[in-house]
Design a protein around this nucleic acid. Structure first.
Lengths: 234, 234
DNA sequence: AAAAATTTAAAGTCTACACAAAATGGATGC
DNA sequence: GCATCCATTTTGTGTAGACTTTAAATTTTT
């Protein structure tokens, strides 16, 4: 067995510090020694310690403030990262064949609830696009989307018959700000029809609002087929 | 107006590269110049470029491979980070008063579905804990949890009458591996009763499995009160 | 005692350089 | 043609040191 190389990589330091937190050697809310001291302890440079602690802070275990030092968070803010794939990728990752179908696309003045939600001025026009995403012939997701025409004038020329509005938007609008929610909703007649489930069925639903520099761009509701689960590991 | 300091911080480089991707100057799937060339272009060191690109890769915009170089991801893998707070924190963040109540805690041999799910050997015993989390007097979450006794023997002495099993576990078991899922389920009689909704109501549900070095530790189902949504911004 | 100015400790970032590790693409051998 | 080996390119990570920025703590002033 070869002698392991010295444990002074930033990864080793991360591991060690984490272990100390978990073993209780580093109590919640307590201060860590400063970077210089740790560098001496691990016999490496401050740069290396810095990277280790910076990443641990990023991952939600530590809180760092200049001059105040580095503190163990009392409630380790574990955070799950969900990759938000495009539907096509998600279906293909399942080994299925992605198929897209446009249901309708038409411009109209924004309904009141939407104006309120996106803080639109009354009477602004929006493009309402509804479409389906299939896994083979099985419904996968029903998408109900509204696009603010003033924010994306090109949408009037867009052709949604072949590709979904999401793919189009991602290519066209370099969005800056997204709010994403997930909830459980109840299938109404429309949704039930498109997803081929009975009315009232619980539906895993996503809502997505996108802004471009403060301007609302799009509001989308995504209704997933029965049995869908969003999963992550960490 | 003072002359802005030269734009060569790693943040500026990130911004610039992102802008180039969004403007189409850097096409999806195309290769970026290598770090040395970019360092020359931005007149900074390779270290700085490295950090910028590393973070962009981390955020899902680029893919980096040694010798192969850095490539623009065709489908920018935007990923949402959801902080998984402890229920207490979540309620308190809403400005509410957290209250906990134990419903039952008893050990038994693992039911078949659980053994299958966690790959337990037949007949292993588990502790079954059910409890409620309230926001004031309003039900917030109903938790149905199973803890593998062989993996956490101390659980036999644990007292869940005052604090929930989740807080206890986090303190006790330095978990290494978590699988977290979210789905929409239908309230059965039990869930409906505890959450004070009518039976059949769609319920936003979380499932969490935790392992410690390959050993299954706990399986939990968390049923959220009606109207719950999990939200993130990025 | 309160407010304002100053000091100072800690993290944040950068430079410049070196060596390590991975993996590609070509060279070599069969 | 196919597999194996090897050189080379590119990212990954480390060292050593400096300067910057933030904000807590102290001192001075009001």
């Amino acid at each position: 067995m070869t002698q392991p190389t010295e444990n002074t990589s930033y990864k080793d330091i991360k591991q060690t510090v984490l272990a100390r937190i978990r073993s209780g050697e580093l109590q919640p809310d307590s201060l860590l020694p400063n970077e210089e001291k740790l560098a001496v302890e691990f016999s490496c440079t401050r740069t290396t310690v810095n990277r280790a602690l910076r990443e641990l802070a990023d991952e939600g275990f530590l809180e760092r403030r200049r001059k105040a030092g580095t503190r163990v968070l009392s409630a380790p803010q574990r955070q799950a990262r969900f990759t938000i794939p495009m539907v096509r990728d998600e279906v293909e990752a399942l080994g299925g064949t992605y198929r897209y179908a446009l249901i309708s696309a038409a411009s109209q003045t924004a309904p009141e609830w939407l104006s309120a939600r996106l803080a639109l001025s009354p009477g602004q026009s929006v493009m309402h696009v509804r479409c389906m995403h299939f896994n083979g012939n099985t419904p996968f997701q029903y998408e109900d989307r509204w696009i603010v025409i003033d924010s994306v004038p090109q949408v009037k020329q867009a052709d949604f018959s072949q590709t979904g509005p999401n793919e189009w938007l991602i290519q066209t609008v370099p969005f800056t700000n997204v709010e994403l929610s997930f909830l459980a909703s109840r299938a109404d007649a429309t949704v039930a029809g498109f997803l081929d489930v009975s009315q009232g069925e619980p539906i895993f639903t996503g809502e997505r609002i996108t802004w471009l520099q403060g301007q609302p761009v799009t509001f989308a509701k995504m209704y997933f087929a029965a049995g869908y689960r969003m999963t992550t590991q960490f």
